[in-house]
């Protein structure tokens, strides 16, 4: 609306001029948005159209693929691979909850208690990102090695008996079990949880805590009635930033998992690269996208947060 209020009063001698100015002014925001829109079209819209087309094609690499509107691919993909879908949601969900449980206290500490160590701790949170994703995941193979101290300790404490009963581990090992995959996912996506939590906690005015205290709220009540509700935007964006990539991840399941921990990302990778069944791979991607979209929409509605930072 600024263009309208900024427009100079029309000089009576030149009645055409203001209209020209106005028109050019109205287009300016579109010109400014052009790079962004182009980026979206080239790297988002076009690939989506291409993938949508691929998902309804039939054929083989040898004879080429043709669009036959074969929507049955979606149904076949879903009925063949629903266990992997459910597993992805389950593992990503577990990892997200673990990230929240681990990340919230840490973010709280950085925001309110770290004092002059705040920047150091923040850097420590981000530092693992300086090495490659793959190396960080492989490191977990050493940490969780069968004869290693971690597994030894868990065995002695009979923790593994409990996780085996829950179906998360296998015998007396952790590697190549669901637990290892969830550990890997939690570790790899933890910073995505901590950083948004930290930004929203850090914004909370400390005087609100004092005020709550003045009104005889116990620290627990202050947290429940003041701090946590105010940090909801961080919780929502943190869980989204963790859950969405974790649900599509395939590296952790590939390196830390086994045959019964394969996630939907692994199936897409196999279909696309090894079996060269592009339609099924594309259909699986769309189903995953749709499923995540539905879950996220539902979640945001429930959490009641529209602005995400």
């Amino acid at each position: 609306m600024s263009t309208v209020t900024d427009a100079p009063p029309a000089p009576p001698a030149l009645p055409d001029k203001p209209r020209k100015v106005r028109r050019r002014g109205r287009l300016v925001p579109y010109w400014l948005l052009l790079p962004g829109i182009l980026w979206l079209v080239v790297f988002f819209a076009l690939p989506m159209v291409y993938q949508a087309s691929t998902s309804v094609q039939q054929g083989s690499l040898e004879d080429g693929f043709k669009v036959t509107w074969h929507f049955a691919t979606y149904w076949d993909a879903l009925s063949d691979y629903y266990p992997q879908f459910l597993r992805s949601v389950l593992y990503a969900g577990c990892a997200t909850i673990l990230c929240l449980l681990l990340g919230y206290p840490l973010a709280y500490l950085i925001a309110f208690r770290a004092g002059r160590w705040r920047n150091v701790v923040l850097i420590l949170v981000i530092a693992p990102f300086f090495t490659s994703f793959l190396i960080r995941t492989l490191a977990w193979k050493t940490i969780l090695a069968d004869g290693g101290p971690v597994v030894g300790a868990l065995n002695t404490l009979h923790v593994l008996d409990v996780t085996t009963w829950l179906g998360m581990t296998e015998g007396n090992r952790v590697l190549a079990t669901p637990l290892a995959v969830v550990c890997g996912l939690t570790y790899n996506f933890l910073p995505f949880m901590i950083l948004p939590l930290y930004t929203s906690l850090e914004r909370i005015d400390g005087r609100l805590h004092e005020a709550a205290g003045d009104l005889y709220a116990s620290p627990a009540t202050t947290f429940r009635r003041v701090t946590f509700p105010l940090s909801m935007p961080g919780v929502v964006s943190g869980t989204l930033l963790t859950f969405i990539p974790a649900a599509g991840d395939y590296v952790n399941a590939d390196l830390l998992g086994s045959t019964d921990t394969r996630m939907v990302g692994n199936v897409i990778q196999t279909q696309f690269l090894r079996i060269l069944d592009y339609p099924t791979a594309a259909a699986l991607s769309f189903i995953l996208m749709a499923a995540i979209l539905v879950m996220v929409t539902f979640y945001i509605r429930r959490a009641g947060t529209e602005d995400l930072v």
Partner: peptide
């Protein structure tokens, strides 16, 4: 508008027009 535009560009015609030629 931009999503609509992109879909219009892509459109059903493009969906059908795609396809991967034989090796």
């Amino acid at each position: 508008a931009s999503t609509g535009g992109a879909l219009a560009i892509g459109g059903l015609g493009a969906l059908t027009g795609c396809g991967i030629p034989a090796a």
